[in-house]
């Protein structure tokens, strides 16, 4: 992989890590603060259904995951396995696409209720 590409990937991993740090903090605090009558699916969906804030927040969370995790996975596979770089890139791109797809499906689910 070209050094300039490596440097750009490092940049995007850093930016997505910053977003993730903020999202994880808000997510955990919200759980602690918002749970009143038990953590039931009905209670959660009642709050998230039709909420634009939920859509934007968890949409950003999913996007940051889909950027951050495959770049880290790429590093691990390159260093720990003998796979050729092309195969590593393809696997990680697929991993990122799956994360994005599953994440968007979940966010869409809690938004539509």
């Amino acid at each position: 992989m070209k050094p300039s590409t490596q440097a750009k990937l490092w940049y995007w991993q850093r930016i997505s890590a910053m977003v993730l740090a903020l999202c994880v903090l808000i997510h955990l605090v919200t759980i602690l603060v918002a749970v009143k009558g038990g953590l039931s699916g009905a209670e959660i969906l009642a709050r998230t259904r039709g909420s634009a804030l939920t859509l934007v927040f968890y949409g950003s969370f999913v996007l940051a995951c889909a950027v951050h995790a495959p770049i880290g996975m790429m590093k691990i596979l390159s260093e720990w396995t003998a796979l050729p770089q092309g195969a590593v890139n393809a696997l990680c791109a697929a991993f990122g696409a799956i994360l994005l797809m599953v994440g968007i499906t979940a966010v869409s689910g809690v938004y539509r209720g």
Binding site: P3, A7, K8, Y11, R14
Partner: peptide
């Protein structure tokens, strides 16, 4: 160096 190279790469200086 990681930060500097990232900035240079985003500006297209490492291509």
């Amino acid at each position: 160096l990681k930060k500097l190279t990232a900035k240079a790469a985003i500006r297209g200086e490492l291509d």
